[in-house]
Amino acid sequence: MRGGVIGVAQMGPIAKSESRPQVVKRLIDMLKEAKGRNCRFVVFPELALTTFFPRWVYQLGDPELEAFFETEMPGPETKPLFETAAELGIGFYLGYAEKTKGKHYNTAILTDGTGKIIGKYRKVHLPGHVEPDPSRKGEHLEKRYFDIGNLGFPVYEALEGRVGMAICNDRRWPETYRVMGLQGAELITLGYNTPVGLGEPFQAAALANFHNSLTMQAGAYHNACWVAAAAKCGNEEGFEMIGQSMIIAPTGEVVAQCSSLEDEVISARCDFDQAQYFKREIFNFARHRRPEAYGLITERIGAGDPLPPVESF
């Protein structure tokens, strides 16, 4: 079967004081649990190796800030995760803060069952602010600490199929899924750290879980692909983050979901061939779309002209 049993490894809070080896041990423990579930691939969260440091204000170049970033992957402290994955024969998605050639990225990698890195993605849609906002109860300063991703949304050959990656805020944007869907993605993997209670309107905070599932279920259905999403969640250093890690089928249905705000592994049998009916019949772009019609709409809107009547399409 193409695809197979896929696991999502949600993480509870990571304290600022936790060391890399301590965090890596938590990842390894969940990797072993996933192996017990017969998983062949596991999705870890965004920034899975550290606390969510964009909540604090640092000056760029501050040694404490720089310590959150990885300069190599795997490095001495993360190598045990790769070695364990190779021993177990499990591939994984891992989000982390990357420093390379003077640039800083919110990054995710994809590995195969031998521990070899076969894909990389750098976050495109950076939320939050550059400068702190004293009117808010908390900060979200990703724009301050990360450069915009420069790798696009590539899709890689993995699990006998095509696998793409996204990170957190990317999941809210339809084009994230569409760009990978047009490349034939059969599984989209993503991790997130989504805080609430930073000063956003009450309604936005109250609907955070609804919008989390809404965007991913719509993306999965519209692009006929599986979505496997892992949260870092719970009360981390006094700040609340949503959980609701889940696995979504190409039908848009949630087939597995975490029920806690702690370290938790869920899994589901993800048959890539299950997506083929929807790719072939429902969302077959070549069969059901007329590029010339969409081009005409774009031209008319750009010129301020009224749209043509429906019967002209």
Rank of each mutant, 00 (worst) to 15 (best):
D273F: 14
M241F: 15
P250W: 04
A220H: 02
E299G: 06
F239S: 07
H222D: 12
A293D: 12
M246Y: 00
G219L: 04
V255I: 15
C225P: 04
E299V: 07
G295Q: 15
S312N: 01
I301Q: 12
D305T: 05
N235P: 00
I248A: 09
A230S: 15
V255K: 01
N212A: 10
A303V: 08
P291K: 13
I282A: 13
L307M: 14
A275C: 14
A229L: 01
M216L: 11
N223F: 05
S260P: 02
Y221R: 11
E311V: 03
N235C: 05
I266A: 04
P309Q: 04
V265R: 04
L296R: 12
Y277K: 13
Y277E: 11
S260A: 06
F313V: 00
E264M: 06
A286D: 13
A275H: 13
D263L: 07
V227G: 02
E299Y: 10
A303S: 14
F278Q: 07
A229E: 01
G252I: 07
P306L: 04
H288R: 14
C233P: 07
D263N: 15
C225M: 12
T298Y: 08
G238I: 02
Q217F: 00
W226Q: 00
C270I: 08
F272L: 12
N235R: 07
R280N: 13
E236N: 05
F313W: 05
A268I: 09
M246V: 03
S259V: 13
E299A: 15
R290A: 09
E237A: 12
V255N: 00
V265F: 10
I242G: 01
